Amino acid sequence: MIRVLLADDEAMIRAGVKAILGTDPDLTVVAEADNGRDAVDLAIAHRPDVALLDVRMPRLDGLAAAAEITRAAPEVAVAVLTTFGDDAYVARALDGGARGFLLKSGNPRELLAGVHAVAGGGAYLAPKVAARVLAALGTRPLSRSGAARAKTDLLTPREREVLALLGAGLSNARIATRLNLVEGTVKGHVSTILTRLDLANRVQAAVLAHEAGLVQP
């Protein structure tokens, strides 16, 4: 069972997100907060698997809360809920240790997939957020996808398969299951991908996978 902390200052949004999470029998909301300060305190007290944080909250915004949770309870995976106009906050979310970027206006299946992904140690980007995350990372724009495809051409076919599944938000364990590999082999592929493509982390790799068109809708 994946235990989730849900923080949003709008009660109706919280209720809607909680209802979506409730459709998945493997997810349970163990605590709720309407401000960032309480979200941090509850994360430390309950140690959920995932902290799902709104960006804009009173007392402490979601990005500052993400950073505090990551420092105080690093085992808690943080995902942020954004609106399409929150581009300027993405860099701060990355710096704060967020591993998931989800749109409030997105498909409910993306929300469920994102929570599962970060809980399993992966990174998840809502498809419409990928280009914005790339820009926030300060990487050269790849919106035409040609440059991204050129970079991924440096990989072997197996490494591109791993990169595609990483971009879809799968953890190493789930990638191993999907490709009938042992988890250690997948870990080695991920390390090689990051090194060969000069990427800092799984979030950057996930962005590149989206830009290269490797991630299927």
Score class of each variant (00 low, 15 high):
Phe101Thr: 03
Leu94Met: 13
Gly97His: 06
Gly100Pro: 06
Val118Tyr: 04
Ala98Trp: 05
Ala123Met: 10
Gly122Asn: 12
Asp95Pro: 00
Asn107Gln: 14
Leu102Ile: 15
Ala119Ser: 12
Ala113His: 02
Val118Arg: 06
Ala117Thr: 01
Ala117Arg: 04
Leu125Met: 13
Tyr124Ile: 11
Gly85Ser: 11
Leu125Glu: 10
Val90Lys: 00
Arg99Pro: 03
Glu110Met: 06
Glu110Phe: 09
Arg92Ala: 13
Gly100Leu: 06
Leu102Gly: 08
Leu125Arg: 13
Tyr124Ser: 12
Asp95Trp: 00
Lys104Ile: 10
Gly100Cys: 06
Tyr124Val: 09
Leu103Ala: 08
Pro127Asn: 14
Gly96Asp: 09
Ala91Leu: 13
Gly106Val: 11
Ala123Gly: 12
Val118Met: 03
Leu103Gly: 07
Ala119Tyr: 04
Ala123Asp: 07
Lys128Tyr: 14
Ala88Met: 00
Gly100Ile: 04
Leu102Val: 14
Asp95Ala: 14
Gly106Tyr: 10
Ala93Thr: 03
Arg92Glu: 12
Asn107Val: 12
Gly120Arg: 09
Thr82Val: 15
Ala91Gly: 10
Gly121Gln: 09
Leu94Pro: 06
Phe84Gly: 11
Asp86Thr: 05
Leu102Phe: 07
Ala91Val: 07
Ala117Trp: 01
Ala126Tyr: 12
Ala117Glu: 01
Leu125Gly: 11
Ala126Arg: 10
Leu94Thr: 07
Ala119Cys: 04
Ser105Trp: 07
Gly96Trp: 03
Leu111Pro: 01
Phe84Ser: 14
Gly121Ala: 09
Gly100Ala: 07
Lys104His: 12
Gly122Met: 12
Val118Cys: 03
Ala88Arg: 08
Asn107Met: 11
Gly100Met: 04
Phe101Asn: 02
